[in-house]
Design a protein around this nucleic acid. Sequence first.
DNA 1: CTTTTTTGTGTTTGCGTACACATTTATTCT
DNA 2: AGAATAAATGTGTACGCAAACACAAAAAAG
Lengths: 352, 352
Amino acid sequence: MTKSIRIKDIALKAQVSVGTVDRVLHNRGRVSEDALKKVLAVLEEIDYKPNLIARTLGSNKTYHLALIVPDPSQDPYWEAPVEGILQAEVEWARYGFRAERFIFNQHDNQSFERAAELALKSSPDGILIAPLFYRESLPFFKRFEQQKIPFALFNTNIHEAKPLSFIGQDLYKSGRTAGELMCLGQKDSGTFAIVHIYEDIQNSVHILEKEKGFIDYLRERNKELKTITMSLSDPHENSFRDQISTLCNTPNLKGIFVSTSKAYTIASHLKEINQKNIRLIGYDLIPENLGYLKSGEITFLINQNPKRQAFLGFRCLANHLLFKKEVQSIDLLPLEIITAENLQSYLDSEIH
Amino acid sequence: MTKSIRIKDIALKAQVSVGTVDRVLHNRGRVSEDALKKVLAVLEEIDYKPNLIARTLGSNKTYHLALIVPDPSQDPYWEAPVEGILQAEVEWARYGFRAERFIFNQHDNQSFERAAELALKSSPDGILIAPLFYRESLPFFKRFEQQKIPFALFNTNIHEAKPLSFIGQDLYKSGRTAGELMCLGQKDSGTFAIVHIYEDIQNSVHILEKEKGFIDYLRERNKELKTITMSLSDPHENSFRDQISTLCNTPNLKGIFVSTSKAYTIASHLKEINQKNIRLIGYDLIPENLGYLKSGEITFLINQNPKRQAFLGFRCLANHLLFKKEVQSIDLLPLEIITAENLQSYLDSEIH
DNA sequence: CTTTTTTGTGTTTGCGTACACATTTATTCT
DNA sequence: AGAATAAATGTGTACGCAAACACAAAAAAG
């Protein structure tokens, strides 16, 4: 076996000390032009790969990451990212990583700002954020950049931000996939509904992307389309139920697409009226949805895998900080199709 | 942060040298009864947790893994595991891991034995194996155990083997999922075919599990079922085509399930006769299948993710050897449903 | 009573990082 | 010129563990 090249070897070859080589490698300055040239020349000709074990041992540093996410107790969807972070923490604890969570109310942009402010104040080495509020997050990205804190986005992409990485899904394609699943085996032309269950206007861009994909696919197949908007935050529960009732009585209605994790609100009504011929497609493996998937009211769920998103976000930051590894700037996760039969295999399988 | 206890601290407390503590910790002997007592007393009272980073640094070892897989040039399915291993090798090279591949002919059990023999002869630190041949692999598992070489299985599980871990899928559930996808939107009762494209009898256990799941699901739905067996290795191409022709002319045939990666052989015929109303479900994202998935002859592919299987197998062995980490003895990957629309998202996404 | 073998023990080396500290140059001011 | 200051480098060490090595002392053999 060929012995790997050590800093010592480089120092010997360049006729400088290991300290100087170290300073060159990390751009710490305090190196004369002459020495710099010599070291760079040696680095050019040999392929130096630092011993990462020794590196982490030597640096003996603890890295502190900040996680900015919505409150899981308000929306179960956000439990998963926190789980993902916990799992990542276990894995990275040996390298001195720990994460602090900054929770915000997903319906309150000021709460978001407070959380981000606190996160910044903790002066973390890296930030993982779900930037649900477009307008409010932009100034923070600038401040992250100014303070040279690397940050990664997940769940929601914001193109103006220049993050280390975005981890999420291609929403347009996700909508197309939903369209495909909706059309499958639907021989006669029928009507398909898109249900908007708004909880917040801010989410609209996010949601419209999915719907565009869905609509495009159905148009290509010449299907009839109907859209309906509902407000879950509306306190008049009765009006909500009435709207669903009206929707379900639409003549020749073949399917309903819910582009959020709220499919269970429709499913519960379908179960009540024992309507099995309307295909319902929604998002995310939240507990509320799972029962209806198993019993058949929901036919497909598309899994956005928020647990993995957060896990990979953590990993991306850790790789960047610890190994100075180049990370891909955009990481689109697969569009996972979940049915009653393959659900368990997804619930059982760990993040690896 | 509380400082963790080092070997040095133990040595100081027991009034011996670090070398002695090390010998006690590793039962290397050469320690006087007196010194042993003192060290054990200290170890009793404190909770010593070795620093894993420093451990791997100190041991300064190179690990050699052996990969025993079928020849990818014979069956494209086996290209993926090799890719997975290559990717894992890159990631683990920094910890001194390297892998050697031992290729065997998947239709020749003697070739398998030769490969396994060679792998053993290389005296690896760990073995990752796809044990396609049940009978022939059992004695090797015993020998692995005797020589105390940890080994992991992937793709095919053999319950009698006591491996470090098995990485694969639940085949029965995979069959059920195929059944579910087959029935979806098929209103009127029809006939469904299972096509056996045998290449080898040995695979039958593997394949029968899937088919059992498929049949069970269809029985629950009261569907008609028809089975047909074909031999691809049969040189009489005409007879093969004739059989498919006969199959496709079955009255009221609604779907075909191919429980191997050979769905493309059926798809090509469906394309020829321009038959779009038979739903074809197969396995694996091999290049031969992808074209037909995109153009619609194949409706669903279930991805066994062999690349990830091998990747995780490598990772499992490495974690075990390097970090002495407890690994789960069985790791069932999710049953991934692939369609024309979500295919690209799977092809694009890396193993993480 | 000497020589060889066994056994116990301490020391060193392997790694990269990040300091404190020492030493050498180069530049500026008096 | 000579001293004072600054910048550039070099030296040394701690971090943490394992394993090889050196060397003593004790036990066994001759």
